[in-house]
Design a protein around this nucleic acid. Structure first.
Length: 498
RNA sequence: GCUCCGAUAGCUCAAUGGUAGAGCAGCUGACUCUUAAUCAGUAGGUUGUAGGUUCGAGUCCUACUCGGAGCACCA
């Protein structure tokens, strides 16, 4: 890009850079030895004290108020922000000359002693200033004012498109956005700690798979050149994790990305983070306990994250409410769903706003009705138990209830939070389920999966009774932080190219 | 994929079909405890892209691009 294409503000920044270089200042430093994070430095000056020790802090100028021969700025780092005070008489002439070239957004090191201003704010009185990185493009910092304890922003960085496309700028100017991602890391760390504490082994399984399975979804396809074969990006981790159960790792989990080639909206990103965990010798009732404890641990981790409003994070009474799929759907319909003929289900589906019900299979119809009549009404965390076998090709049959499986889903705020079952470990039954799926696929259902012969071979070697759970990490964090858009919990959400 | 809404200065936003503006940021100057600092001055634009209507288009029409909301899809 030549200078004629740059806007005036960008040209001004480059001119400032040129002046610094002409005066022998290196505008992009290699390192800075800081002694304190800003939050730790502030803690060195307790209430009632007006003078403190020398500190060296480093960060970005997020505000700058020049009064001629003095100036105040706020320096922001990962821990927060701290005011710095610059006074011409306290600084070497060449240092003051550097200061006069600085802009909001510049990254600096500030060395000086802690003081308290007339208005009571803890401040570093700068004696040595080091430019660490010159900003050549203005960051859209908002003016801020604290009114009644609340920070009000004026003319901030508000365009959602630009905030997602330039997440670096969004993060740089919005500490509360950074807080969401600190919360995300703390949450996954707490989940790992919880599972590790139970003796689970964290593993990694293939993302590129010759067959996709473990869920009903359209996959992304790709091609391996050397092998000259199609590969699919996984839609679930499930079938590989259960191969590991066969292999003798009796408690395994994976946190990783799944990929589904579907629409993008408030709750869907084409790649998203899934937690799956499998436990030998456990059935789905054990897994309900695990899920309850895991979600409580995740919520505690989010609640304790600095910058997160703890009052907005849900608290939970355990055990969670438990309802059964068939009776709750029958209650919603006002009649026994299992005795309804298909035509009656179509009629009921139309009454409840299901689109084109006559194109749907019986299990899909029932599922649509369940979503409309039951799922959307669930607010507090609730386990829904025992789904029809047609909807659950990988789950064990329900003991004493033909046609149902030992499966539960956890719902909260109308959204699915977890899906789990007593895993099917009978290879003969599993083959029949796969073949039913293969018939659906042959009939044009591109979400149905085929027969995974290798998985069946593994199961034939003997798979212990196993309980398994899948939890969407992004949606769990959305629920715990009260965010409405999945883009707010994913650092770089999918966007069309600019 | 469908419907509606939107795109104007670095940022946030104005502008009956009739000379494209403001605040902040920038630049120049004043100001040695400020905090949306203040004050004075100044500069900054192919109005998302391409066509069309019109004496004249930021504004009206068409198509396209990108985004938002909703719908569809997503067990």
């Amino acid at each position: 890009m030549n200078n004629e294409e740059l806007s005036q503000v960008l040209l001004d920044r480059r001119a400032s850079l040129d002046r610094l270089v002409a005066n022998g200042v290196a505008p992009f430093a290699y390192a800075y030895e800081r002694t304190h994070l800003t939050a730790d430095a502030r803690a060195l000056l307790p209430d009632g004290t007006d003078a403190g020790p020398a500190v060296r802090i480093a960060g970005r100028f997020v505000s700058l108020r020049s009064k001629g021969k003095t100036a105040f700025a706020h320096v922001s780092d990962a821990s927060g922000r701290l005011q710095a005070y610059f006074r011409k008489d306290d600084m070497a002439a060449d240092q003051w000359a550097v200061f006069e070239e600085l802009h909001v957004g510049d990254i600096v090191g500030v060395a000086g002693t802690l003081m308290r201003t007339r208005t009571g704010e803890v401040t570093v009185q700068c004696t040595e200033l080091t430019l660490l990185a010159k900003t050549l493009r203005p960051l859209p910092f908002a003016k801020e004012q604290v009114v009644d304890g609340e920070t009000r922003r004026y003319s901030g960085f508000a365009d959602p498109e630009q905030r997602y496309r330039q997440r670096y700028a969004d993060l740089a100017v919005h500490p509360e956005v950074r807080a969401n991602f600190y919360a995300r890391a703390r949450m996954t760390s707490a989940i790992r700690g919880f599972l590790d504490g139970l003796g689970y082994l964290e593993v990694e399984t293939p993302v590129l798979q010759p067959l996709y399975g473990g869920a009903a979804a359209r996959p992304f396809t790709t091609h391996h050149n050397a092998l000259d074969m199609p590969l699919y990006l996984r839609i679930a981790d499930e079938l590989y994790l259960k191969r590991l159960i066969v292999g003798g790792f009796d408690r395994v989990y994976e946190i990783g990305h799944d990929f589904r080639n579907e629409g993008i909206d408030r709750t869907h990103n084409p790649e998203f983070t899934m937690l799956e965990f499998y436990e030998s010798f456990a059935d789905y009732t054990v897994m309900m306990d695990r899920v309850e404890q895991l979600i409580v641990a995740a919520a505690d981790a989010v609640r304790s994250t600095p910058g997160i409003d703890a009052a907005t994070v849900p608290t939970f009474a355990t055990p969670f409410r438990r309802i059964e799929w068939v009776p709750s759907l029958s209650a919603g319909l006002g009649r026994d769903v299992m005795s309804m003929i298909d035509a009656d289900l179509v009629t009921a589906a139309m009454e409840h706003g299901v689109e084109k019900p006559n194109t749907l299979s019986r299990p899909k119809l029932m599922d649509e009705l369940f979503q409309a009549l039951v799922e959307r009404t669930i607010t507090t965390p609730t386990f829904v138990l025992d789904y029809p076998v047609e909807l659950s090709p990988l789950a064990k049959p329900k003991r004493g209830m033909p046609g149902l499986t030992e499966r539960f889903e956890l719902f909260a705020e109308g959204r699915e939070m977890a899906n789990a079952f007593s895993e099917l470990n009978d290879p003969i039954d599993q083959r029949q389920r796969f073949e039913a799926q293969a018939r659906l696929k042959a009939a044009g259902d591109d979400e149905a999966t085929g027969v995974d012969e290798d998985y069946l071979r593994a199961m034939e070697y003997g798979m212990p009774p196993t309980g398994g759970v899948g939890i969407g990490i992004d949606r769990l964090l959305m629920y715990l932080t009260g965010t409405q858009h999945i883009r707010d919990v994913i650092l770089f959400p999918a966007m069309r190219p600019e």
